[in-house]
Amino acid sequence: MTSARVRRLGFAAVKGTRHLARDAVTLAADGPVGDRAFCLVDPESARVLRTVEHPTLTCVEATTGDGGELRLRWPDGREVVGPLEATDEAPLTVDPLLTVDYWGRAATARLLDGPHSTALAAYLGRPVRLAATQPGEVVWAGAVSVVTTGELDRLRQRMLGAGLTAPIALDERFRATITLDAEQDPEPGTRLRVGTATIEVARRIDRCAVVDVDPATGRRDVPVLAHLDRHEGLLTFGVDARVVQPGRVEMGDPATPENPSH
């Protein structure tokens, strides 16, 4: 892979909610700061809610503020805003750390009290609790995920060849930390200098039916998953990476291989 530039940055503050574009992302040793800092937990089974089982969650926008509050916004414009930390004006009950199940592996979470859980439970039609998570613990792949415009274009062409109309915001469906304006994905083992950070590519990312969901409506509309390449028996798209050198990545930053042999 030759040098490329950052075309899109993004993450979701609450796991499963809409993957929002960002002007800049800070990469810490354990991944993007703020990425999936919260999740929803089934209080009876102590299991993290799976997005593929609750696709309408993808159209809820979640943002955090400097004052320690979380804002949830629905497509109809309705909002719920509340603090994530106790204050004199808004005391909150915060439970001890809890071990929860995330796709068969243990993760730690702290259940939070407040208006968000009530609103999301009503929206999803089932009991849920908002929980704070440890960095990277409710992330399916590596700390950082990368897709490229070249691979996105080839996917669009395959879908067009099958008589389908590819979604306009196709890259948003893959929920990548970084979208690079590049012809192909960097190979495993490649180290990329992106902004002031350095990442090392690990492996291709296997995908699930969430990519068939329109993030604007939360409804399955186009069979994107069926048109992905199969790699070692899995349907994959994009690559994940670990953070070698923490730093800041901004839109338009160059991404330069540090080991050009890859």
Rank of each mutant, 00 (worst) to 15 (best):
Leu234Ser: 13
Gln157Glu: 14
Glu44Pro: 01
Leu234Ile: 07
Ala197Lys: 05
Arg126Leu: 10
Arg73Ser: 12
Pro186Tyr: 13
Leu155Lys: 04
Val239Lys: 08
Gly82Glu: 00
Gly68Met: 07
Ala132Met: 03
Asp35Met: 04
Asp88Gly: 15
Thr133Lys: 05
Val14Glu: 01
Thr198Leu: 02
Ala241Arg: 05
Asp35Thr: 04
Val33Gly: 12
Thr118Arg: 14
Gly34Asp: 01
Ala28Leu: 06
Pro115Ala: 10
Leu152Ala: 09
Glu69Gly: 13
Ala209Glu: 05
Leu9Trp: 05
Met159Ser: 08
Arg129Ser: 11
Val6Ala: 09
Ala132Tyr: 06
Leu170His: 11
Asp240Tyr: 04
Pro32Trp: 09
Gly82Ala: 07
Leu225Thr: 04
Arg248Trp: 06
Pro43Gln: 06
Thr56Glu: 10
Ile178Asp: 03
Ala37Cys: 07
Pro83Val: 07
Ile178Tyr: 12
Val211Ile: 08
Thr133Leu: 05
Pro127Ile: 06
Phe38Ile: 00
Thr26Gly: 14
Asp153Phe: 10
Val6Ser: 06
Arg173Ala: 05
Leu57Ile: 08
Pro91Asn: 11
Glu61Lys: 14
Trp140Cys: 09
Ala197Phe: 06
Arg126Val: 04
Gly195Ile: 01
Ala169Asn: 14
Pro75Asn: 10
Ala122Lys: 09
Glu85His: 15
Pro186Ile: 04
Arg47Ala: 14
Asp214Asn: 13
Thr179Trp: 05
Asp240Asn: 11
Arg105Pro: 00
Arg156Met: 00
Val144Cys: 11
Thr2Asp: 12
Lys15Asp: 01
Gly136Met: 00
Gly31Asn: 03
Arg5Asn: 14
Pro260Ile: 05
Ala28Trp: 06
Val80Ala: 09
Glu137Leu: 01
Val239His: 08
Leu124Tyr: 07
Glu85Tyr: 13
His227Thr: 02
Thr17Gly: 11
Gly34Trp: 04
Thr179Tyr: 08
Leu234His: 15
Asp171Ser: 15
Thr26Glu: 13
Asp66Tyr: 13
Val224Leu: 02
Ala141Lys: 07
Val243Phe: 09
Val41Asp: 03
Leu40Trp: 04
Asp171Ala: 15
Arg73Ala: 14
Leu120Glu: 00
Ile199Ala: 08
Pro188Arg: 10
Gly233Lys: 10
Val146Gly: 09
Thr198Lys: 04
Glu85Phe: 15
Gly77Tyr: 11
Ile199Asp: 00
Leu112Arg: 13
Gln245Ser: 15
Asp66Gln: 12
Gly247Phe: 07
Glu61Pro: 01
Asp23Arg: 15
Thr17Glu: 00
Asp95Pro: 01
Leu20Ala: 14
Met159Arg: 03
Pro246Ala: 10
Val138Leu: 03
Ala132Leu: 02
Val244Ser: 07
Trp140Gly: 14
Asn259Ser: 05
Leu70Ser: 07
Ala131Glu: 00
Arg158Trp: 06
Leu130Val: 05
Leu27Arg: 07
Ala176Trp: 02
His227Asn: 02
Thr58Tyr: 07
His19Trp: 12
Pro127Tyr: 13
Ala202Val: 13
Ala216Trp: 12
Tyr123Gln: 01
